[in-house]
Design a protein around this nucleic acid. Structure first.
Length: 731
DNA sequence: CCGGGGAATT
DNA sequence: AATTCCC
């Protein structure tokens, strides 16, 4: 990964005065750009933390009575995770609800479509880890990487470590020997796991190794709530144990198929495959990365995730269709048949359109004005009509709206005026709104031929591609594939927010003709830049219009965008019929709990008994404050002298000048800071560190980069500004 | 392979 | 804007 990075940005790196290059050149990972002469951290210590059945744990915290019963978390018709009581009875992840209930009739099911609480807890975990160590990278909701190299180095100067905490891969009673760093890492892992348990009530596994790859691979060796350290001499072993190339993190479905086409199926196959041949198929950077991965080599840095770059919300519903679709069915079937022979076509694609959010509406959003959505929906519908024009039928299965280019946010954790103002002035909001949509998946199972009538439409506007879902519950013999296709998810994305790069392309198109005829305001006779939607423009207050037209307002980088998009059948023109606009179900989160809003999705069943049962018959022993983590008020159980010292030192409370990425803000007195309680210090540090960078744009555009020699991505991300965590905090 | 997310690359 | 990857 970084191979390609430093190829493309080499120039920048060398000219920005970096003295401390973080990228390691692993002896075996050497590649084209020869001139890598680094002193660098020879021994990184990386942790991978993986929460046990995360969603189920969160639910069991909310209702402890669930701890003793088999519990499954259900999304649509699938069990996405389950607790260990359920696993003992044969329930597994990704099992269908029907099968899970067959194996475990007493299985208690909870709906997991609404991720709010999981997301919230997930970020608490990341924040907690960040309060101990700044380099935390999220991977999904339930995994985190932590680069504890510096922490280890500090401890190394103070202590001697003879033993490992937890397991050591392939070894039983082994001493630290010459693996002091990893041994110290294992102790830190144990402390972090203990902190998660005591302050959040969560258990999980940890892997300790010298890279993200290895840490992740080893973390699952001993499953519930245990940790494992991998010694360098066992790298070949653990790589060899992998079932196949698909099991290598970073090798996805597509990549593994391409590798398979080269005759490569096992990790060893790839290890032994000539790099030159690999390069022919994947290009040099990817080829090198893949080969390195097969060898257990991964030099990618732990890049602090910080605040999320996007937030989204989705809801799914059944197929949207009207009687007019009868015609199209026949064509569908024919198209499906043809397409079954043509290669991939696999999945549908998503379309989207976007345009700027008018400034004054942006202000309403920020101020919480309740009529902001009303304004936005107008804009969104215009975007929608950019994709689906005319009056032909459409069959949406998903809608999504999204804000991008979020404005900076003020931090939440510390209300201090000086700090707040530090973040509030600066860049102006550059929001975007995106709308997306999905159409039904092309080609289903073997043809269910339905009658159809010929309703003539312009050939190109006909939505071919959706087989009518005549697959009825009755024919679902084993509740698996057929059902799933019949239930083809139709989603409606309700909202999302994304913080993107600043120079986001605005796809708003000028709509050919409309000038005076559109009857705009007085200013509307001016020629608008091609990237400004005249209709949107017309809605702006006059002073804003004037501002937009002024020479001072460069039209080059579009300020912000609004867009609409969705999934449509592959290669098909997107059409829409009349004014029908699909009304999605209300999001599950808005329904009373236990409401069988999605009951239709279980074929052959009118309801979901398990849902009701789980809510109504369980003893509700949980009080509301049971929701809060046991240790919210209270500090981690201090053996934290050492940890607090870490934090203090990192904060600059110590004497050593902190590296620029880790210090307290300039307006905070380090002495005062150092006198704060350790846990407060950690919280402050975490809050400061979470401030997002202004942008992830290449360093070349950043005029003054501090000679902080971390990976440039990490450096950018660790910057400042734009704390989105508030979105996840209750109330 | 299909849930409700995410991020990075092209 | 679409694809690929991750959970």
């Amino acid at each position: 990964m970084e191979n390609s990075d430093d190829n493309s940005d080499e120039e920048n790196e060398w000219t920005t005065g970096f003295t401390d290059v973080t990228l390691e050149s692993h002896p075996a990972a050497v590649h084209g750009t020869g001139s890598n002469r680094q002193p660098t951290p020879t021994h990184r210590v990386i942790l991978h933390l993986d929460l046990d059945c995360f969603y189920a744990q969160v639910e069991m915290i909310r209702n402890p009575a669930l701890r003793s019963v088999p519990l499954g978390i259900q999304q649509k018709y699938m069990i996405v995770t389950c607790n260990y009581v359920a696993r003992e009875q044969g329930v597994t992840k990704l099992m269908s609800v029907v099968e899970a209930q067959q194996r475990c009739p007493q299985l208690v099911l909870l709906r997991g479509e609404d991720l709010t609480q999981y997301r919230d807890m997930s970020y608490r975990v990341t924040e907690l880890l960040t309060s101990y160590c700044p380099l935390v990278e999220r991977l999904g909701f339930d995994e985190n990487y932590v680069d504890v190299t510096e922490m280890v180095e500090r401890r190394l100067t103070q202590t001697n470590c003879f033993s490992f905490q937890g397991h050591v891969y392939n070894r039983s009673g082994t001493n630290a020997g010459d693996h002091q760093r990893l041994a110290l890492g294992s102790h830190i892992a144990a402390e972090l796991r203990a902190a998660m348990d005591s302050t959040l009530g969560l258990t999980g596994c940890a892997g300790v190794a010298t890279s993200k790859l290895l840490a992740k691979l080893v973390s699952g060796t001993f499953k519930p709530n245990q940790q494992t350290t991998l010694l360098p001499e066992d790298v070949d072993d653990i790589m060899g144990q992998l079932g196949g190339l698909r099991r290598v993190p970073g090798v996805g479905h597509q990549t593994s198929k391409r590798l398979q086409a080269l005759g490569l199926v096992s990790v060893q196959d790839l290890q032994l495959f000539p790099l030159a041949d690999l390069v022919k198929e994947f290009g040099a950077p990817t080829a090198q990365r893949l080969k390195n991965l097969s060898l257990g080599i991964d030099t990618s840095p732990v890049t602090p995730t910080g605040a999320p770059q996007s937030l989204s919300d989705e809801d799914s519903f059944k197929k949207i269709s009207t009687a007019k679709e009868v015609l199209e069915k026949t064509q569908d079937l024919l198209n499906s048949l043809v397409e079954r022979y043509s290669a991939d076509n696999k999945w549908f694609s998503r379309e989207s359109r976007q345009c700027p959010v008018p400034h004054h509406i942006g202000q309403k959003i920020i101020s919480g004005s309740s009529d902001a959505p009303a304004h936005l929906v107008t804009i969104a519908m215009k975007l929608f009509h950019k994709m689906v024009e005319g009056s032909t039928a459409f069959h949406l299965t998903l809608l999504n709206v999204c804000f991008t280019n979020l404005p900076p946010r003020v931090p939440t954790a510390t209300g201090k005026g000086a700090i707040t103002s530090f973040f509030t002035h600066g860049t102006s909001p550059r929001n975007s709104l995106i709308m997306s949509q999905t159409q039904e998946q092309p080609s289903g199972g073997p043809g269910h031929v339905c009658g159809s009538e010929d309703v003539e439409r312009s050939a190109q506007s006909v939505m071919t591609q959706h087989h009518f879902l005549m697959t009825t519950p009755a024919e679902s013999t084993s509740g698996s594939e057929t059902d799933q296709h019949a239930l083809a998810a139709t989603k409606s994305v309700v909202s999302s927010v994304t913080r993107g790069r600043q120079g986001v392309t605005c796809s708003t198109q000028a709509q050919a003709e409309h000038d005076s005829t559109s009857g705009g305001g007085p200013l509307f006779d001016f020629r608008l830049p091609p990237n400004v939607d005249p209709e949107v423009f017309r809605e702006l207050p006059e002073d804003i219009q004037r501002e937009l037209l002024s020479p001072a307002f460069p039209r080059a980088p579009p300020a912000s965008c609004v867009s609409v998009s969705g999934d449509v059948p592959a290669r098909r023109p997107l059409c829409f019929g009349s004014d029908e606009y699909p009304a999605p179900h209300p999001p599950a989160s808005q329904l009373p709990s236990g409401s069988p809003s999605d009951s239709h999705q279980l074929p052959g069943r009118g309801d979901s008994p398990a849902d009701v049962r789980s809510c109504d018959t369980l003893p509700l022993t949980v009080s509301d404050d049971g929701q809060l983590p046991p240790g919210t008020a209270g500090l981690a159980p201090e053996k934290n002298g050492a940890v607090a010292a870490d934090a203090r030192r990192a904060a600059g409370g110590g004497r050593q000048a902190p590296s620029s990425g880790h210090g307290v803000p300039g307006d905070v007195d380090p002495t005062v800071f150092s006198e704060l309680p350790p846990d407060v210090q950690r919280e402050l540090m975490a809050a400061w560190r979470q401030q997002k960078p202004v942008s992830k744009v290449p360093s070349s555009v950043k005029p003054e980069r501090k000679p902080f020699g971390k990976d440039k991505k990490a450096a950018a991300k660790g910057g400042q500004q734009n704390n989105l965590y508030k979105y996840f905090k209750p109330g």
